[in-house]
């Protein structure tokens, strides 16, 4: 399956990836490919859109319609594509900075309008590509190039953010539970509505090194194991015990009318009912007497 899958969905000539050895991003990419493969999705029906940062390079390796946009803006571009190509599977691949800092507004509004896009967040709590500055998900107290004395702010919980904003499929996983991640991404893609999969991953180079984990991927992975707790286990833990931990699992999976279906329904209705009245011979638009 491995080579078949690689051949089917990868732009092999673009490999190796530009990611550092030991980076978690490659694992998420392979999960993503397996999800597409599991669902047996036609490549011509997939658009993958990204923002800026290490995660932003993901689409370049995948043989679908790929768009590497500006920082934080993957979702707006994806929205335009999805609205005009309702039959497409549209994936927005973002880093934590993309999703929760510069693109935070787009993220919550996509959730609110429940547009059928799958958002996959490569959440490593750091700006890797630019050299290790703090991100909105950097843990409290962690070190970064712009937090040399430790981060003083509390991190965003991307899952809570998505839930609060109305996303209809919300899950968190990590690179430590790969087969599960494949399925979660597949579930997210299948889901009709805005899906968010927050993936806790690692940046050994700019995060690990500064936070006593070193560049060793295994040390960094162990840190991921430390800070993630499966939902089941979390149920029996106290608030104190859960401080600084990311709970993994599916937080929401619900059916709700999504924007595309509502729009298509409206278009159908209007098509049957009318040609625009005010474009009739020369009747200009003014408010009628009883409304003035």
């Amino acid at each position: 399956m491995k080579t078949e899958l690689a051949k089917k969905y990868l732009r092999l000539e673009k490999l190796p990836t530009l990611w550092c050895s030991g980076c978690g991003h490659g694992l998420i990419l392979s999960s993503l490919l397996r999800a597409l493969y599991l669902l047996n999705i036609e490549k011509d029906k997939v658009a993958m859109v990204s923002g800026i940062g290490c995660s932003g390079r993901t689409p370049g390796y995948v043989d679908v319609h790929t768009l590497h946009t500006t920082h934080g803006r993957a979702i707006p571009f994806a929205t335009g594509i999805k609205l005009m190509k309702p039959e497409f599977y549209v994936l927005a691949v973002m880093g934590d900075g993309d999703c929760a800092a510069i693109g935070g507004n787009h993220f919550i509004h996509a959730a609110r309008r429940n547009i059928d896009i799958t958002a996959i967040v490569y959440n490593n709590g750091i700006y890797g590509m630019t050299g290790g500055q703090v991100s909105p998900t950097t843990p409290y107290g962690a070190y970064a190039s712009t937090a040399p004395y430790g981060q003083l702010e509390e991190p965003f919980d991307i899952v809570e953010l998505a839930l609060g904003a109305g996303a209809t499929f919300v899950a968190r996983s990590s690179i430590d539970e790969i087969p599960k991640l494949d399925r979660l991404i597949a579930d997210g893609i299948k889901h009709k509505g805005f899906s968010v999969i927050d993936v806790i991953t690692i940046c050994p180079i700019t995060f690990g090194r500064r936070n006593k984990l070193g560049e060793d991927p295994m040390m960094n992975l162990r840190w991921v194991q430390d800070i993630t707790v499966p939902m089941k286990k979390a149920k029996d833990m106290s608030k104190e015990e859960l401080k600084g931990k990311w709970i993994t699992g599916i937080f929401r999976d619900e059916d709700k009318p999504n924007l595309i279906d509502l729009y298509l329904e409206l278009n159908k209705k209007l098509k049957h009912s009318m040609v625009d009245e005010s474009s009739k011979e020369g009747v200009e638009d003014v408010r009628r007497q009883d409304e003035t």
Binding site: G282, E284, V286, R287, R288, Q289, T292
Partner: peptide
């Protein structure tokens, strides 16, 4: 007072 509408009627 329907000023804008009056303008629109004249214009038309």
């Amino acid at each position: 007072q329907g000023i804008r509408l009056a303008g629109a009627i004249l214009a038309r």
